[in-house]
Nucleic acid binder design. Structure first.
Lengths: 331, 331
DNA sequence: ACGTTTTCTGCAAACGTTTGCGGAGAACGT
DNA sequence: ACGTTCTCCGCAAACGTTTGCAGAAAACGT
């Protein structure tokens, strides 16, 4: 592997000089010398060793991004958002798939410390909680930003107003004339779920519709569970439901499948509305109406905040991005 | 940040000793001393600096994984396969999203060199070709493995027999009585596309069905294009097509949407078969029949080969994994 | 009792960078 | 002519590890 020393020898200068043209410091270097060095670099195919550099500078220009499960279509957009601005700003991102496993999260956290990443972006409260329980933050002064609700007030977060968005979605359903509205939820320890449920409840209250516990189907955000929950509900219940508010798109799509299999038309017999606006939502038939979360922008913003954190800028603790009700064909 | 020196001082030993218990070398260290060091490590919350280590060892235990687009549901399974065995073997993986951009690929390749990754796994021939054109391999003795067809005979690859699998899929259609079979392809410079098209052609030939160029719809593997291509075809052509062989699932799903919108029943009016078996395939209605590619295993195998490469083991240049015809509801 | 082996520990060099400091020579002002 | 400033360059220390080598003490064999 060719080192800076080789370049120096080849260009007949000291390594100091090579380093200086490499980093384009304000330190003056003669233009003819610079040219010679640049040539040597090209001829030898020299690429500076990031480890040596990082060791000295105590800075890696690398950040870790912890996602729960990259297979979940929600995450790739976040990743892309983070990556895009990271690239603009000269950062590399190490993607860590926690796969919802506490053990895996811990392992990755260790790797990230050993690699001395400059910061970590968490998606979802779960991972942050795991990390907190491992006392990760106490002994590691690494900067963090959370996408979603941060369990710790000191950590900056970028999020979306779930209760309001959820309320708007349900009120739309109500405006359409629906009074029998089922909601399908995610895991209950998720603050996202709590908030979206709260929005649902508020919409009902505000319109004088009684809240019925049988109408909230507790699931886990996955396709299968949405499918099964609704299938079961239709078999068992003799209430005539006219609308379903799925707390994410993945379940909404499972729900639509169950509905179709029962011979119910969407939206004529049952209206469906989802949440997130994953790409898939416009692929299904009928196209899914949903609450559009600016997923990509969530990623971008998180990375921007991270960068500000690095450079010591003042940052706002909580950034809220707007959602939008996206009416397609399912309601 | 606490260093090995701090640990040494705290445990009242030399850093040499700390390093030795850290790496559990065969070099003897008194058990009581070891205990003391271990305590110091825990008390101080010491995590060895991977950069310092890597600098000395000239080995990072890190590999790069280049994928075209993580949003494409095909890739997450690969990523997971690679990650899983990487973790087992003590490697970290840096995920690089090329987003099908030559520029982005080049940029990432540079980052990977500077970080001195031990090896790179490429998915798809495109990225390898880009890299080759940048003379990446000549000046970088980094080990590589390719998932898919390698354009360079020296690089080990793990792949699937596309022509045979494709042929089997089409022959199944023919056995079902179909003679008017349209195929929808991906970008023509992809060897995958060439092979799958070849399998289609072979199946026709072997069964005395003429190959008609109007029946191959040239697309780009994306949902939208599949949708539009078939929509257009149905509008224009007066041939009565009874089956469609989509060269990947994403397009197959787009095709199904187009079909449904034209009022055609699947599979009664038109049978559809896909390729890949992405998770989504079983979510749609009707569930998509497809050629199951062992995507996850592709990833696992690639990483295993990479590891063998690192340890200098003998490895086979080409590994072929079996596909399986997965008949669900769409044909 | 004394050489030999074994067990344990530490010194110091090396890995490839960055950068504070200092020095040589040219340019400049008077 | 001589101090001062400016431009350009290099020395060497430092970043945090690993490991070859050597040495001290203990255990062992005779």
């Amino acid at each position: 592997m060719v080192t800076i020393k080789d370049v120096a020898k080849h260009a007949n200068v000291s390594i100091t000089t090579v380093s200086r043209v490499l980093n384009q410091t304000e330190h003056a270097v003669n233009s003819e010398t610079r040219e010679r060095v640049l040539n040597a670099i090209k001829e030898l195919g020299f690429y500076p060793n990031a480890m040596a550099r990082g060791l000295h500078l105590k800075e890696t220009k690398t950040i870790g991004l912890i996602v729960q499960d990259i297979s979940n279509p929600y995450y790739p957009s976040i990743v892309r958002g983070v990556e895009d601005v990271a690239q603009e700003l000269g950062y590399t991102v190490i993607l860590a798939n926690a796969y919802r496993s506490r053990e895996r999260t811990t392992k990755y956290l260790n790797v990230l410390r050993e690699k001395r990443v400059d910061g970590i972006i968490f998606t979802g409260g779960g991972a942050v909680k795991d990390a907190a329980e491992d006392n990760f933050f106490e002994r590691n002064p690494v900067s963090t930003v959370v996408i979603g609700k941060s369990c710790n007030a000191k950590m900056p977060s970028v999020q979306v107003n779930n209760v309001q968005a959820s309320r708007e979605a349900c009120e739309h359903l109500i405006r359409l004339g629906h009074r029998q509205i089922v909601t399908v939820t995610g895991p209950e320890d998720s603050t996202t779920v709590v908030d979206r449920l709260e929005g649902y409840r508020q919409a009902l209250m505000a319109n004088g519709i009684p809240y019925r516990d049988e109408f909230v189907l507790r699931c886990n955000f996955e396709f299968d569970e949405g499918y099964k929950a609704v299938e079961r509900f239709l078999d068992v219940s003799n209430d005539k439901v006219t609308a379903i508010f799925a707390q994410n798109d993945m379940m909404a799509i499972g729900i639509m499948k169950a509905l179709k299999e029962k011979g119910l038309k969407i939206p004529e017999n049952v209206a469906v509305i989802g949440f997130d606006n994953i790409p898939l939502a416009s692929f299904v038939t009928p196209m899914l109406s949903t609450v559009a979360v600016p997923i990509y922008e969530l990623g971008r913003t998180a990375m921007r905040i991270m960068s500000d954190l690095q450079s010591g800028h003042e940052i706002s603790r909580i950034t809220t991005l707007p959602t939008k009700l996206l009416l397609r064909q399912s309601c």
